[in-house]
Amino acid sequence: MTGRHPEGGEHQVSSPEDPTVQAAGCVLWRRSPDSGELELCLVHRPKYDDWSWPKGKLKRAEDALAGALREVAEETGCRAVPGAELATLRYLANGRPKQVRYWAAEAVACAFTPNDEVDRVLWLSPEAARARLTQPHDRPLVDALLTALRRARAAGGPQ
């Protein structure tokens, strides 16, 4: 997928041979403590005034899944258990190609503290999360997560 996206940042892992910025993130989910219904976590980044999935640039030589879980912890305060790998999004960010790999991840313990990078998190139903996401290219990940959770449930795994 290609489009304009207003991201910048510190960890731009690329080489002269491949200028693509490598990043990773998670579609973080939990069961509501009140209703038991599925909820997805979105983060608000004040620098861009947008709502997105927790994600970020990989550090040099960092494993993509490890980087995705690190970004979840930094941005949401959540420890997460990774599940299926979801889509890889490709788009332009600040005029450079960017590739973001995503995983489904279940939040198992959270303690969010607002910071300069992320000032709010929201736990929303899949439908509300899809509507709140700022970038249209992020929305198909809602369906990708729902499909992955259905497959895991059918295989006898966690839901």
Rank of each mutant, 00 (worst) to 15 (best):
T2S: 13
T2L: 12
R4W: 11
R4M: 07
R4F: 12
H5Q: 10
H5R: 15
H5L: 12
P6H: 11
E7C: 09
G8N: 11
H11P: 00
H11E: 11
Q12W: 09
Q12D: 10
S14L: 12
P16H: 09
P16T: 04
E17A: 15
D18A: 06
D18W: 06
P19Y: 02
P19V: 14
T20I: 09
T20W: 06
V21L: 14
V21S: 04
A24Y: 00
C26F: 02
L28M: 07
W29R: 03
W29Q: 05
R31D: 14
S32M: 06
P33D: 11
S35H: 00
S35N: 03
S35D: 06
G36Y: 05
E37K: 12
E39M: 07
E39A: 07
L40D: 06
L40P: 08
L42Y: 01
V43D: 01
D49R: 13
W51T: 09
S52F: 01
W53C: 10
P54V: 02
P54C: 04
K55C: 11
K55P: 00
K55H: 15
G56N: 02
K57T: 03
L58M: 08
E62W: 01
E62I: 02
E62M: 03
D63Y: 00
A64Q: 08
A66C: 00
A66E: 13
G67S: 07
A68H: 00
A68W: 00
L69K: 05
L69C: 05
A73M: 04
A73L: 12
E74M: 04
V81R: 15
G83I: 06
A84T: 13
A84F: 02
E85D: 01
L86A: 08
R90Y: 09
R90T: 12
Y91V: 01
L92C: 02
L92A: 14
A93S: 15
R96N: 11
R96W: 13
P97Y: 07
K98L: 12
Y102V: 08
Y102N: 08
A104K: 02
A105T: 03
A105L: 04
E106M: 11
A107G: 05
A109T: 03
A111T: 06
A111G: 04
P114S: 09
D116E: 14
E117M: 03
D119Q: 11
R120V: 09
V121A: 01
L122T: 13
L122E: 15
A128F: 00
A128W: 00
A129S: 10
A131E: 15
A131C: 02
L133E: 05
L133K: 10
H137A: 11
D138H: 15
R139K: 15
R139N: 07
R139S: 05
P140M: 07
L141M: 10
V142K: 07
V142M: 03
A144Y: 01
A144W: 00
L145Q: 10
L145G: 12
T147P: 00
R150V: 06
A154Y: 01
P158Q: 04
Q159D: 15
Q159S: 14
